[in-house]
Design a protein around this nucleic acid. Structure first.
Lengths: 209, 209
DNA sequence: GTCTATATGGGGATAGAC
DNA sequence: GTCTATCCCCATATAGAC
């Protein structure tokens, strides 16, 4: 079947997230995907290129959506608020976590970024950096226009803090409901976005130190 | 020599951070540490227990310091501000990054938390959870007293966001100076703490959604 | 496109001498 | 406490039949 490729990607995504890259073998992947061991090398060339493909398959639509939403915001005559920009940045990845079509896929992916960034190999890093370069550029510019009192280094720091809050929340979200004894449920996207946007926006608006 | 144990811990810390746990072999570790392969099992029992020891060696002093500083804050008649509590939480780990005695060690450790949390095995998770249970308890209570208008779930969310901002900043800090073209230098602890505390404190103070 | 079989190398752990 | 040698298992990748 032609969709062996997709089945491998689905399974790889889940296993990489749960066990890391070096912790997951091609045997495990092809075993769970009802595919042959040799299929990975046939379809992707190598394990490293499979990893890269797992990432770009998920991030391309998310990042495209972020840019479209930012375009809409900026097309308006009224300048966008910090809250609106932050929401356009945070909402697509967080919401994708709950989309029944995509299931848990994005949670898996975000758990993997940490693994990917600390790889010695270069393929995955390059894919990720390319994937996010335009995003970072566009969103820091948009925020900078609304926060023109803020020194450029502070703007960048705060952008890093925002990404950290988002990435960490996604990465621990499977455990968070239990750890918080039910108080925080990351599966409730509305609530999660509703909690994160005011926190981050207030952080951006804080007076420079 | 007796300090073979320490040399193994030092090398393991660096290699685990750079390559992940499954990506680092005991052969690599003992090779770089001028120790024998069998020394790991002699001193630690297994690779898994070595990982756990690498963590607790670094976090025990940090968390003890956090609790002492919080005790000092709370001993005062004047109730502590949100900024003071946040600083007591963030400063010890961030400052430890720059301590010349410890060198880069804590950067390594923080890069590893992501790896550790997504392990299938249980030893490391248990060590980490035990290590942080009291910290989370004490700091959420202290913050909650100063933010008594804030619903408990919002307080917890924001605590998660703070940890995310901190952990992510530490984990990408080796690349941040280059990525930001020199604007942000995480090696300057004063500046880093000075940027993070106002951001996080403003986030905590934001009106509940 | 899919399979079997295999080449080639590295992994963690341990037994037992020193 | 340290070393060598070894057990046994698993990894990625590929060759070649179907």
């Amino acid at each position: 079947m032609e969709n062996t490729r997709e089945r491998i990607l689905d399974v790889a995504e889940r296993l990489f997230a749960e066990q890391g890259f070096s912790g997951t073998s091609l045997r495990q992947i092809t075993g769970s995907a009802d595919a042959n061991l040799a299929a990975v090398n046939y379809h992707f060339g190598s394990k490293e290129q499979l990893i890269a493909e797992v990432f770009s398959r998920r991030f391309e639509p998310i990042n495209a959506l972020r840019l479209r939403l930012l375009d809409v915001l900026e097309a308006d005559e009224r300048p966008p608020t910090v809250e609106e920009i932050v929401e356009v940045f945070l909402d697509p990845p967080l919401r994708a976590c709950l989309d029944p079509e995509r299931g848990e896929s994005l949670l898996h992916i975000s758990q993997m970024i940490g693994h990917a960034m600390s790889r010695p190999d270069s393929t995955v890093r390059d894919v990720l950096l390319e994937q996010f370069e335009e995003i970072i550029q566009r969103f820091t510019q948009a925020l900078g226009r609304q926060l023109d009192h803020l020194p450029p280094d502070q703007l960048l720091w705060r952008f890093v803090f925002m990404i950290g809050a988002m990435a960490h929340t996604m990465s621990i979200s499977p455990e968070l409901k239990i750890l918080s004894k039910g108080l925080c449920d990351p599966a409730d996207t509305e609530e999660l976005v509703g909690a994160m946007v005011p926190f981050v926006a207030a952080g951006f608006r804080a007076p420079a130190p």
